[in-house]
Structures are given as structure tokens and as C-alpha cells.
């Protein structure tokens, strides 16, 4: 249904009704901004990059054939834009390989986190995830994109995406575990 909605509005935009693009912006602004924010680590830069990504998407809309999901296409533009920006700024792009995954990540029980703090913990843990992992988690869990769709966005192979997603999840658990331990120490 969502894809059908997108196609409906895209056709309208292609036929010259530019104002319908606001539907697309409104629908995807949060996820596009979140990806940009994670990669660029600065709200101002992230807003600019998100804006640029939407404008780029608008200008290249005629090249969108509808064979893939529009969201996948849009995220690929955003992701590529952010990566180019990072390279331009010569920032270090943190990858999963730079962060150690501890064995005790396997032992985590999410029920151990007080329910009222769970959202807060997850948010902090997500912020601590490397950029590429964050994007994978975001697309897989928030956007419910398939492995194939994510591999199109990140230009990784499907098997590599699967492995990286698994490692990202492990990393998230590891971070959460560490946070829980710290919390426990402060209580004791």
C-alpha cells in the first residue's frame, strides 16, 4: 500500500505537480535525517544533507523506474550523499571492524533493563553504533527493508549485508550489556 502511495505521488510529480513532493518529504524526512545525522554527527550538516538528498531525488525522479521500492532508491541517494560528504570532509567513517564485540553480548536479557528506561537505553546504544551498522539496523528494523533492499542501498552483497547486520545486532547487544553493567555498578 505504501509503495502504491509513493508511486501515485511520484506519477503526479512527474506530470508536473511539484507540490506533491511535499508528501514524500514529510513521509521520509525523519529516516533520511537520522541517517544523515548519524553519519555527519552534526544536526546542521545533517539537515543540509537531508535537504540536498531530497532535492537530488526530486531532480532524478525521472530516472526512477519503479522496479525497486522508492524508499530504497531514496535511501541509496541519502547514503551515497552522506558517504561522499564524509570523504570530502576526510572524516573517519567508523566501521564495525573498529569496535570490539564482547562474548558476553550473547548473555543479554532485555527484560533486565527497566521497562521505563528501555527506549532511552536503546537510543543511547544506537547512537554508539558505528555509522554503517546504524544504517543497517535502521533500515532493517525501522523501515522493515529486506536484506536485498538494504544491499542495494549500501552496495554490499546480500551475504555481506546479512553478516554485517548480524554483527551490528551483536554490537548493539554488547553496548547494551556494558550499559547495564555500568548501571549495576552505580547502584551497588
Amino acid at each position: 500500500m505504501e509503495q502504491k502511495d509513493d508511486i501515485f505521488y511520484i506519477e503526479k510529480i512527474k506530470s508536473g505537480q511539484t507540490n506533491h513532493f511535499s508528501y514524500i518529504v514529510e513521509k521520509y524526512k525523519d529516516i533520511v535525517f537520522s541517517i544523515a545525522l548519524k553519519v555527519l554527527r552534526n544536526r546542521e550538516d545533517a539537515e543540509e544533507m537531508a535537504q540536498e538528498s531530497f532535492i537530488k531525488a526530486y531532480k532524478s525522479l525521472h530516472t526512477f523506474k519503479g522496479t525497486a521500492k522508492f524508499s530504497t532508491w531514496l535511501y541509496r541517494i541519502t547514503y551515497n550523499n552522506c558517504i561522499s560528504e564524509v570523504r570530502k570532509k576526510k572524516q573517519h567513517f567508523v566501521s564495525t571492524n573498529d569496535i570490539e564485540i564482547k562474548d558476553d553480548a550473547e548473555e543479554l536479557n532485555l527484560d533486565g533493563i527497566p521497562s521505563e528506561n528501555r527506549a532511552k537505553y536503546i537510543k543511547i546504544a544506537l547512537q554508539k553504533l558505528p555509522e554503517d551498522d546504524y544504517t543497517l539496523v535502521l533500515l532493517y528494523y525501522f523501515e522493515e527493508q529486506s536484506i536485498e533492499e538494504i544491499s542495494k542501498v549500501t552496495k554490499l552483497s546480500a551475504s555481506n549485508t546479512k553478516v554485517k547486520l548480524h554483527r551490528a545486532r551483536k554490537k548493539l547487544y554488547s553496548i547494551l550489556n556494558e550499559m547495564l553493567k555500568e548501571e549495576l555498578y552505580t547502584i551497588l
Partner: peptide, 9 residues
């Protein structure tokens, strides 16, 4: 994760 709210511009 589904319950989480994303960052907004």
C-alpha cells in the same frame, strides 16, 4: 526498536 522515535529535523 519499532517503538523508538527517530530523530526529526
Amino acid at each position: 526498536l519499532h517503538e523508538m522515535k527517530l530523530e526529526s529535523p
